[in-house]
């Protein structure tokens, strides 16, 4: 392998390792926010909210590294597409981290009061979201367009659960008109998780672009 390729491959490997770390942090943030919501664990919720800045810092680091690779290595073809994809993946993971932090804030706003009803649908949405994050980062590292397409399909389950959860909450609102505040927070939680799934789908679309050069819409 030529020296130029060795330098490029090493830089790309470092970038991928950072993105893998960022994906793991975003996934963990979501899992922890879900636990904080379920158990009304305010300390955990505060920690998730605080740790979001670590994800943001990693985003800046990855973006700076990617720009240096573009400037010094002048990549073309699939090398360039992969770097473009890396920047998009990073931006979406940062947003996913924000959603997890927002879930933690919603848990804090509920002030540890017991839930009107167990949040089974919401828990399931968060679990699927966490799996999607893990699968999509693996698909990116492997440059696997088919795995990205498969992962995006999981967003349908989040959307279906969101519809069910919203219906459930509307019923609860009628049943417990004195607890509209908590019901409203729960609606926001569901909306956050639904949007999180959309951002993972965006990542999947960019992985397909990185692998094929074609822009596609998944889950229209």
């Amino acid at each position: 392998m030529s020296t130029t390729r060795i330098v490029f491959e090493e830089a790309k490997t470092r970038l991928f390792q950072e993105i893998l770390k960022m994906g793991t942090m975003a996934e963990e943030a979501l899992v922890r926010a879900n636990v904080a919501l379920k158990n009304q664990d305010l300390d955990l919720a505060r920690a998730v909210k605080e740790d979001d800045r670590l994800i943001d810092e990693l985003q800046y680091l990855i973006e700076d590294e990617a720009v240096v690779i573009i400037a010094t290595q002048q990549p073309v073809a699939s090398d360039l597409r992969v770097l473009m994809t890396a920047l998009k993946v990073t931006a979406n993971l940062e947003r996913i981290g924000d959603f997890a932090a927002h879930l933690a804030k919603l848990a804090l706003r509920m002030e540890g009061k017991p839930h009107m009803k167990p949040l089974l649908g919401i828990e399931k949405m968060a679990e699927i979201g966490a799996t999607m994050i893990r699968e999509t980062v693996s698909a990116f590292i492997a440059g696997d367009a088919e795995a990205a397409r498969q992962t995006a399909k999981m967003d349908d389950s989040i959307d279906d659960l969101n519809r069910e959860v919203v219906q459930d909450i509307l019923v609860l609102m009628k049943e417990f008109p004195d607890r509209l505040e908590q019901a409203t927070q729960l609606l926001k939680v569901a909306t956050n998780l639904e949007r999180l799934g959309d951002h993972v789908t965006n990542i999947c679309e960019w992985i397909v672009f990185g692998a094929t050069g074609q822009h596609i819409e998944l889950n229209e």
């Binding site: 030529s2 390729r5 990549p75 073309v76 073809a77 050069g213």
Partner: peptide
């Protein structure tokens, strides 16, 4: 050619895999 070449030999050449 520079963004999405069809032939793997073109891709290999322009991305410095051989010279």
């Amino acid at each position: 050619i520079f963004f999405n070449p069809k032939d793997p030999r073109t891709e290999a050449y322009i991305s410095g895999r051989f010279g």
